[in-house]
């Protein structure tokens, strides 16, 4: 153990309780998605369709666009973060 290791102490052990909780949260999240019939490829389709609509009004930064599903208690939210470069001129 080097000096730094001596200062910070041994690495904190991940308990089986933490592991169970983490694995379960992830599994249940996927279960809920499956029940909602929204597999990852469908989520990707949604992202692309959404972007094509938004691109009519804004010039967006596609590379920095993030679309995720976030979980809060018993609700899942679709969160899209789409950086806007500039407004497109109306026709």
């Amino acid at each position: 153990m080097g000096l730094l290791g001596w200062l910070t102490g041994p690495p904190k052990e991940v308990t089986s309780r933490d592991e169970a909780k983490k694995r379960l949260q992830l599994t249940i999240f996927h279960d809920r998605m499956e029940v909602m019939e929204l597999p990852p490829e469908r989520l990707n389709d949604l992202r692309n369709e959404l972007l094509s609509v938004i691109a009519k009004y804004f010039e967006v930064d596609i590379n920095r666009t993030e679309c995720t599903l976030e979980q809060d208690e018993r609700e899942v939210a679709f969160v899209a973060n789409i950086p806007v470069k500039r407004l497109r001129a109306g026709e």
Partner: peptide, 19 residues
Amino acid sequence: MVKSNDMMSVDDVMEILGI
């Protein structure tokens, strides 16, 4: 077992199930 971190706690289960 909860005390020794080898079983999920009441709070852990409640957080996951949300009821």
